[in-house]
């Protein structure tokens, strides 16, 4: 679930055209590092390359593997949403509209006996009566 949060956020972020600029203001840290120049050099020689390598690795992991997974997940959500919407339109709503159609069909079938032929009317009426009677007796 948390992944999907990330995913949605990531999708949004990636698609957002104007990315927010991160401004780094020269604060105390900057001044300190300015003073401790040798340390800086030391770090540059030792830690930084390693960190950069690790960073590159995590970056790759982040942008390809994790993000890919997250993108996949969020795209999955959208596809899922389309599916749910499809079900909503054709299954849930279709059922309701289907009932209405069925009622009309039955109504049509019930009012067609109006052929205008009295003998047919009589035969139908008597036949149904006899049928109901038979059912009643066999009940």
């Amino acid at each position: 679930m948390a992944l999907s949060v990330l995913g949605v956020a990531a999708v949004l972020f990636r698609k957002r055209p104007g990315r927010a600029k991160v401004e780094t203001s020269p604060g105390i840290l900057a001044r300190l590092s300015y003073q401790a120049l040798f340390l800086d050099l030391f770090y540059q020689k030792t830690v930084v390359p390693f960190s950069v390598q690790v960073g590159k690795a995590t970056n790759w992991l982040d942008s390809r593997a994790w993000d890919g997974l997250v993108h996949l997940l969020s795209k999955g959500q959208v596809v899922g949403a389309q599916l749910v919407q499809f079900a909503d339109r054709y299954l849930v709503d279709g059922l309701v509209n289907g009932v209405a159609k069925l009622a009309k069909r039955v109504g049509h079938w019930l009012s067609t006996p109006r052929s205008g032929q009295i003998q047919t009317y009589l035969i139908r009426a008597l036949a149904v009566t006899v049928l109901v009677l038979a059912i009643l007796i066999l009940w």
């Binding site: 009622a103 009309k104 039955v106 109504g107 049509h108 019930l110 009012s111 109901v132």
Partner: peptide
Amino acid sequence: IIVATLLVGNLAALL
């Protein structure tokens, strides 16, 4: 009979 009458009357009126 009532069930039949209700169904016939209502459904046929539909059309």
